[in-house]
Amino acid sequence: MDDHQETLDLGSYAALGDSFTEGLNDPGPDGRFAGWADRLAAMLAARRPAGDFRYANLAVRGRLLDQVTAEQVPQVRRIRPDLVTFCAGGNDILRPGSDPDEVAERFEDAVLELREHTGTILICTGFDTRTVPVLRHLRGKIATYNGHLRAIADRNGCQVADLWSLRSVHDRRAWSEDRLHLSPEGHQRVALLAARSLGLAADQDPEAPWPARPEQTPAEQRRENLQWARAYLLPWVGRRLRGESSGDHVEAKRPELLPL
């Protein structure tokens, strides 16, 4: 653990990004989605006196990198949190014809802006999609983007939550039914990884083994894949063709730094 992590004292945190950081498919007690960022905020708040930690979550599902930069990064300039998590560009990488080199250049421009207004920046790499139908074909682009993200972190003194190396999320139970967003347990494991990446001690291990379960037969896997394609993949493709986003008309769930 380096000196920065040993002396880390965070009184406020703002989460930036898309559906991953908004927390889709992790229902919270207030009826809104919670997600790994909310869970990380709770861990950080537990280290301080009651009411002495403030948290904002500016992430909105479906946002592309330029939208995150235009809508969310300027809010950091205004609220000046101690910690920012900046996880963006994944939706850009999923788009046909996107160039991970070019996306990374725009990501670093945003990091340079964020550095002026916060003390600590944590970025997340993309997941390894080798076990994900359809998305496994984008594995090379994601790996290229991840290489850029690690280099950006090195150049700019950012912390990194390396989701590519998180083997526990290769289990199907880490993902919700749509296979694009994490399940509650998946969000918890990412929160634990993020906490560890910040040098915080945690009682649980993000790589803890999953409980044993019966193996699916090939026929069961085929049926499940067909159901998933009808329920989730085809509507997702349809939205892309129509130029629609799941985040249209959605606003940030926690736009201000408020006590947690």
Rank of each mutant, 00 (worst) to 15 (best):
G119L: 08
E177P: 00
A229K: 02
F86P: 01
A45I: 06
Y145S: 02
L83G: 10
C87G: 12
W210Y: 08
A46L: 07
Q221M: 13
L192S: 02
K141G: 08
V169E: 00
A42M: 06
Q204C: 05
Q72L: 09
D101K: 11
Y145C: 02
P74D: 12
R189C: 03
R167G: 07
V250E: 12
W164N: 01
F107S: 11
C124T: 11
P209L: 04
A41R: 05
R130W: 15
R239I: 00
L135F: 14
P206D: 04
E224R: 15
I93Q: 02
Q216R: 15
K253E: 09
R172S: 12
N225D: 11
E113V: 14
G17E: 02
M43D: 13
D203L: 10
L257F: 06
W210Q: 07
V68T: 13
S245K: 11
R54Y: 07
E113K: 15
W36E: 01
K141N: 10
A191H: 00
D2H: 14
V84G: 10
P184I: 00
R39S: 03
P49F: 10
L192I: 03
R150C: 12
Y55G: 11
P218A: 10
E177K: 05
L10H: 04
P184Q: 01
W228L: 05
A59I: 06
S12L: 10
L94F: 14
D82G: 15
Y55E: 09
L192D: 01
P218I: 08
L163P: 00
A161N: 04
A153E: 04
F53E: 08
E105R: 15
A202N: 08
E22W: 02
Y13N: 09
R172Q: 12
N25R: 15
A56F: 09
A195R: 01
L257G: 04
F107Q: 09
D66L: 14
N156E: 03
T7I: 13
A41Y: 03
Q227I: 09
R80Y: 08
E220Q: 15
T217K: 02
T69F: 06
A41W: 04
Q159P: 00
R242E: 06
A195P: 01
R48H: 12
A252G: 10
F53T: 07
R47K: 12
P27Q: 11
P206W: 05
W210M: 10
R63M: 15
P211S: 05
Q5D: 14
Q67Y: 07
D9T: 14
F107L: 14
V76A: 10
Q227E: 13
T129L: 12
G186L: 00
